[in-house]
C-alpha cells in the first residue's frame, strides 16, 4: 500500500515535469495559458510557504511579501549584475536558492520576536517587517529605488515552476508528517502545553520561519524572472494580503488546500480581468465572506489521501531497540 502510493506520487511528479517540459515546446498550449499556469505555480509555492506559518503553526504572518521581495531582488541582482550573462541560465536554480537563502536569513529576524510575542503583536511585527523591506528597497538607488529593477532574462519556465512546486510540496509534506510537524502543529494548538510536553518551540519556530521564508524567496526569484521587472510596490502589504486570501480560501493547515487556494484565486482574478478596477473589489469581498461563512477554507485541516502517509500502526517495520526497564510495555 505504502509502496503503491509512493509509486503513484513519484510517477505523477515525473509526468507533471515531463508535461511542463514538453507542452510549451510543442506549441500545443497558447503562451497566455502557459503564463497563467506559471502564475498559478508561483502562487502555489507562496501559499504553501505561508500556510506553514499561518496554518500549521497558527502564528499570524501578514508580511510574507517581504520575504518574497528579498528573494526576488537578490535573484535579480545575481542574474543581472553579478553573473556573466551566459551563466545566468544554467545557474538559475542556484540563483533561486540564493534568493531563498537571503529570504530565510530575513526569516530569522521575524522568528526571534515570535519567541516572545504571538497573535496580534506578531502580526504587527511581520507587518512592520514587510513595510521596512519595501521602504529599504525604495531607498536603495542602485536597485532602482521606487522605479524598480529590470533587465532580468526570462529564465522562469513552466518546467522550473513545476519543479519548485513539487519540491516545496515534498519538503512540506515530509516536514508536516514528522515529529517536527507535529510539534509545529502543537504550537498552534497550545504553545504552553507544547513546551511542557518537551517540545522545543523556539527551535521549531525557527525552522518554520526559515523554511517558509526560503520558499517565499524562491517564489520571488521565479516571479522576477517571469515578469522581468520588479519594483518595491510589487511586494507591498497588498501582495501579502493576496497570499492570505489564497491560504484562507484553500484551507489552513492543508497542503491540498494551498494548491487549491492558489489555483482558484489566480484563475478567478484572470477571469475577472474584464471587470477592470472592479475585480479588486471582488477579492477583498470574497475574503470577508469567506471569513464569515467558512473561516477554515475549503480544505481546512483536511488533506487529500494522496498527500497523507499511511496511518501509523503498531508493530511492523523495524522494532527499534528493545524498550528500557521502565518501558510502558511492562504494565499489562
Amino acid at each position: 500500500m505504502l509502496r503503491q502510493k509512493g509509486f503513484l506520487i513519484w510517477s505523477g511528479a515525473a509526468l507533471i515535469l515531463a508535461l511542463a517540459w514538453g507542452l510549451p515546446a510543442s506549441g500545443a498550449l497558447n503562451p497566455y495559458v502557459i503564463q497563467i499556469l506559471m502564475y498559478v505555480g508561483i502562487n502555489m509555492i507562496l501559499t504553501l510557504s505561508l500556510n506553514l506559518v499561518n496554518g500549521y503553526m497558527g502564528e499570524f504572518s501578514v508580511g510574507h511579501a517581504g520575504f518574497m521581495g528579498i528573494g526576488a531582488y537578490v535573484a535579480s541582482v545575481l542574474t543581472v549584475a553579478v553573473l556573466p550573462p551566459a551563466w545566468a541560465a544554467p545557474a538559475f536554480p542556484a540563483v533561486l536558492v540564493c534568493g531563498g537563502a537571503a529570504a530565510a536569513l530575513a526569516g530569522l529576524l521575524v522568528a526571534y520576536p515570535s519567541f516572545r510575542t504571538r497573535g496580534d503583536y506578531l502580526a504587527i511585527v511581520t507587518l512592520a517587517f514587510n513595510m521596512i523591506v519595501k521602504s529599504v528597497l525604495e531607498n536603495i538607488s542602485w536597485l532602482g529605488g521606487p522605479r524598480g529593477y529590470l533587465g532580468m532574462p526570462r529564465l522562469t519556465t513552466l518546467f522550473w515552476v513545476a519543479a519548485w512546486v513539487i519540491l516545496t510540496l515534498l519538503v512540506l509534506r515530509n516536514l508536516v508528517y514528522s515529529n517536527f510537524g507535529r510539534g509545529i502543529t502543537a504550537i498552534r494548538e497550545d504553545e504552553v502545553a507544547a513546551n511542557l510536553t518537551s517540545v522545543d518551540t523556539r527551535r521549531l519556530k525557527l525552522y518554520a520561519f526559515l523554511i517558509s521564508a526560503f520558499f517565499a524567496g524562491v517564489a520571488g526569484g521565479l516571479y522576477a524572472h517571469l515578469l522581468q521587472f520588479i519594483n518595491p510596490r510589487s511586494f507591498s502589504i497588498l501582495k501579502s494580503t493576496d497570499m492570505l486570501v489564497m491560504v484562507y480560501l484553500g484551507g489552513v493547515g492543508s497542503l491540498t488546500g494551498s494548491l487549491l487556494g492558489a489555483t482558484i484565486f489566480t484563475v478567478l482574478l484572470e477571469l475577472l480581468r474584464p471587470l477592470g478596477i472592479w475585480r479588486w473589489v471582488v477579492g477583498p469581498l470574497m475574503l470577508v465572506l469567506l471569513m464569515i461563512y467558512r473561516p477554515q477554507g475549503v480544505m481546512g485541516f483536511k488533506e487529500a489521501r494522496l498527500f497523507k502517509p499511511k496511518l501509523p500502526t503498531p508493530g511492523g517495520g523495524s522494532p527499534g531497540p528493545p524498550a528500557p526497564a521502565a518501558s510502558p510495555l511492562r504494565g499489562q
Partner: peptide, 24 residues
C-alpha cells in the same frame, strides 16, 4: 490541555518529542 485538532495518537507521540533522535 490537549492538542485538540491532533489525533489521540499524535498527542501521545508528542509527549516523546524530547526523546526523538533524528534531524530535520
Amino acid at each position: 490541555r490537549l492538542f485538540k485538532e491532533l489525533s489521540v495518537l499524535d498527542n501521545v507521540r508528542l509527549g516523546a518529542f524530547g526523546q526523538h533522535r533524528y534531524s530535520l
